[in-house]
Design a protein around this nucleic acid. Structure first.
Lengths: 234, 234, 234, 234
DNA sequence: TATGAATGAGTCTTCATTCAT
DNA sequence: AATGAATGAAGACTCATTCAT
């Protein structure tokens, strides 16, 4: 992915814009069904100039995936390392995940649909990053069981249910619909956690703790976590 | 859906085979990224002969969708009209849905990924059939609430959770994995129904009733419901 | 163009029907733009059976041309050999030509448009037949000049004007329009002959002679001349 | 008629060259029977580059028609509005028409043969332009009758005779044959006008007036009228 | 930085024709 | 006498990519 060695300061900015416009197009028509020519029209640049920024069409796909998985893994690790109980961390993770899905709806759509079009190393890197996220979730679930909060269940299947419930949201969500990430997370977790918890675990208290936590750690807003720092080094 | 006016008895059979092989290819590579030439190699027919059976590439997509939605809607309506309580019917519907997903994994993959590539009337017909299924689910949820079995929740969001949980399964399921539709349905419903039920509703009893019901109505196995009759006239 | 050696008595009839239907199709859409499949639908025969009758697509074109040039040359020779003055024979020839154009409008359309699509010997035979007709016209014109009926003009150009005037009629004529061949011939010749005649030639008398001639020789109606005998040996 | 939004100054030139080469090919083989691949060989450009200029095959047909009808209608309107008697204007129109036919022989061939292959709006626009020309001719004929120069005839049929006589010329004319537009027009009009005139109208004087008119209005040469201005903005 | 022009492989689809039955 | 099935070449057109300027 080596970029032409020297380029001005605006290069990175314009590049991001192009990637985001590509994400929108790909989300609407599909990666394979969208032509570079269409993209060049939307971007307002001749095809030649476009290639100066994008390198190749597949490269665009890689960048789009990165804009989903990059922030997601960063925040997932941060949350996983918090000194809080597992169910609470799961609740935070849920909200972070939904935040990305809603805020980067187009990117997520592409991420879910077209990762199979990647080839070779791009593909394997992607798959291992997906596994990384899955294992974070599964670890939290295992911790919740060990802590006696969840029934003793198949953690892999529980993790898959968690992902099903959250990831499929991109199919019907609207970025500025009535339901925001915080609301959806509350509802999803209400279902999911109530469904798996033992009698010991107090679901009612969970949401109160989330509110409190957020008040005390403003920098821990999903929004902040996901998009502040990360936008720089992408 | 036969196209050319006259053709021999084997025409329909071969046609189905081609559609199923197309589903597998499309699932693996994506509809737009799969060429008719590739399909013709897999099928073992020259391109010309292939078109004799398929009419057009888009038409293949339509047929694949139909092989998912056709049986699904048939069985969904049958279940919805059963004289049983809503939660029980929801449990049966869950299993029917998962049965289709597992048994027609490739078709479902294509169904979930590439319906946007349909154009015009094909697309609108598909969308209205999807809505039809959604409304069956939502109606059952509403009935469950009215019967006092479920908490008073936003039925649309609950329906979407139900779909998320089930539909996304195609992403990771293997047709002959360890988990069959019956097991997955039990687990999903255990989560989903426990998550939404009131204290009145007895989840424990549900699975027992499913076993009993199945024993008394062999013709009500998901498998039977979905594929026996329908395979003939498709 | 050898036909399968033995075939029943209906063969020729059906063959003619197919050729005529082909002429209509080709006239409407153009020879190259009409597919054998379309023809087979119109004819109501599977493509295989069609080929039993037609041999090849190009062969159809040959037959269509023949159904124009065949009768035309037969009648042109008959008329040319009449023991009448040249202008009168020209008038009869005009009507015969227009009769074919109106009665075989589709065939003529194809004849005028698609003869260039013929290859090799088919093409050269056609061209020589066209020349044959042209030379008949030119001979009559030369005779008219020698008889003092026409001014001394370039006979080749006069012949071309005659053909222009008549042949182009296929472009706008309707087979059952208000103007029949007899009327059109009268009008065309009124223009053409008045334009070329010397003061000696009495145009007024010409039409009267045509009426008389026709009354005395019923078998000399253009219709009769062109289509009675010829239909048999085609 | 430039298609892609931005292109260099040579674009239009090359485009015209391609259109003219296409006209020649289409005239020889027929529009439907000529492949874009053949054209690309003649033009010396890969198919992809060819499409950069032509947009589509049908579009070529449109442009070819325009190169006939465009100049023709321009000059026809100019002539029709001259302050001269109707027969004289008809004579000028005849020469203008023949000039186009001889100078754009290939385009005219295509124009006469393949307009039916146009679809939708292209087709209806073409047909209405053809009607426009026809109505100019018919109007002149009507004026000639009212002025007492022509006998009282069916003007529609007379117009069709005029068109037959002129238009069919493309079938046998050679661009650098012995007969130029001026000569052909004189001959055609000698036939046509002599054929339709009353005793009042002095045909002999007509050609003298044409010579005088041309001397006084050099810019009124058919050549000049048709191709000087128009070639620029086409 | 940006562009217009060019390419050649590849897209879906249609075609005239053949042939076993 | 007729058919359904098959073919392979060719059809129009699009694509991702390159490169001189």
């Amino acid at each position: 992915m080596a970029r032409p060695p020297g380029h001005g300061p605006e290069y990175g900015v314009k590049r991001q814009e192009i990637i985001d416009q590509a994400a929108e197009l790909f989300a609407k028509k599909g990666f394979a069904a969208t032509s570079v020519a269409e993209l060049s029209v939307v971007v307002g640049l001749a095809k030649g100039a476009l290639y100066y920024y994008i390198g190749s069409k597949e490269n665009l796909l890689v960048e789009i995936q990165d804009r989903v998985l990059g922030p997601l893994l960063v925040v997932a690790h941060k949350i996983a390392q918090l000194d809080e109980d597992a169910v609470f961390r799961l609740r935070l993770l849920s909200e972070a995940l939904l935040t990305i899905i809603l805020r980067r709806l187009h990117h997520v759509w592409v991420y879910e649909h077209d990762y199979r079009q990647l080839s070779g190393s791009n593909r394997s890197r992607l798959i291992s990053q997906r596994r990384e996220f899955e294992s974070i979730v599964e670890t939290l679930l295992r911790a919740a069981i060990q802590a006696g909060a969840f029934r003793s269940i198949d953690t892999r299947l529980a993790m898959l249910q968690f992902l099903n419930l959250h990831n499929h949201t991109y199919q019907w969500a609207h970025p500025d619909g009535a339901w925001d990430a915080s609301y959806l997370s509350r509802e999803y977790c209400s279902t999911f956690i109530s469904g798996l918890r033992t009698r010991n675990y107090d679901v009612e208290a969970l949401e109160t703790r989330v509110v409190t936590f957020r008040a005390q750690h403003i920098e821990w807003t999903s929004e902040a976590l996901l998009f502040t720092d990360h936008r720089v080094n992408s």
